[in-house]
């Protein structure tokens, strides 16, 4: 099958990018979208060009590394599918695909289709955990969790952190991602002690990162490879509003956003850096 690809090429964060047209004449419909780019890259290297940089790792839809826009839809046309599992059966001979990176100021572009999603890590670091140090745990069956609660926690915990929700949102909001983690931990009995502080901190961090606000329109959940429901956003809002109204202690954990790629010799907590 023949395809025309228009791929966003951009050498680095400070250079100008543009869509570049590539013609592919021999695409097998059993290939995945990423394998299609592999084949194109092999050709490009053969011609002495630089291959298209795109993020990928597990290629089985779980690590959350891959993802880009195909014709304006995050992860392309198939429901609940990351681009690594999107087979070319989803396209027809002669189709033209426009491939662009996730676009959001909180996801600065690194190169071509690769963006920096460390803002997601900082949202988790600000409170997306249960504070239980190793060795502190009671017997696993000491805390009973009703099956439907465990199932709901799992529905939210299935998030792979790919960023498609942000990419698809007209506001570039991280509400689905943040809501998923708040819901996963917030419905479980283990997560109750920190439930309010978690909502306050994670929401504050998401705001600090420069994500937009949620307008409840549902584009995020429609492209989510794990079909995380909008319900998690409502739960985040509920926890956040309840926490904001009831809190006494105003201390909230947030982390200064950064975009530089720091290296070891500049690290403060390296007691052996003596030079």
């Amino acid at each position: 099958m023949r395809l025309t690809l228009h791929v966003w090429r951009q050498q680095g964060p400070r250079t100008k990018g543009r869509l570049v047209r590539y013609q592919m004449d021999n695409v097998d419909h059993e290939m995945s979208m990423l394998e299609c780019l592999d084949v194109l890259n092999e050709e490009l290297i053969g011609k002495g060009d630089e291959p298209i940089a795109f993020e990928h790792d597990c290629r089985e839809g779980i690590c959350g590394s891959c993802g880009f826009m195909i014709n304006g839809v995050a992860h392309g046309p198939a429901r609940a599918t990351t681009v690594c599992q999107l087979t070319m059966r989803n396209f027809k001979d002669g189709d033209s695909l426009t491939i662009e990176p996730w676009r959001a100021s909180a996801f600065p572009l690194i190169k071509d289709l690769v963006v920096d999603r460390r803002s997601f890590d900082r949202i988790v670091a600000s409170g997306g955990y249960i504070s239980v140090s190793t060795g502190n745990a009671p017997d696993a069956n000491a805390i009973l969790v009703p099956k439907d609660i465990a199932d709901r926690a799992m529905d939210a915990a299935a998030c792979i952190g790919c960023g498609a929700c942000v990419a698809a949102c007209p506001n570039a909001s991280a509400a689905l991602f943040t809501g998923a983690k708040i819901s996963h931990l917030g419905v479980l009995p283990q997560g109750q002690p920190e439930r309010h502080l978690r909502a306050l901190s994670m929401v504050a961090q998401a705001n600090l990162e420069g994500f937009g606000g949620c307008t409840n329109i549902g584009e995020c959940t429609a492209v989510c490879p794990k079909e995380i429901p909008l319900e998690v956003i409502a739960r985040m809002n509920r926890d956040y509003i309840a926490a904001a109204l009831s809190q006494r202690d105003a201390e909230v954990n947030t982390i200064r956003p950064f975009t530089e790629w720091s290296t070891g010799s500049k690290l403060v907590n390296d007691p052996h850096a003596t030079s």
């Binding site: 014709n71 662009e100 676009r103 937009g212 549902g218 584009e219």
Partner: peptide
Amino acid sequence: RKRRARPVAYASKESIAS
């Protein structure tokens, strides 16, 4: 804020659920 959150627009963007 929405404008600041996505300074570079998509060349192509579809709405599929809203």
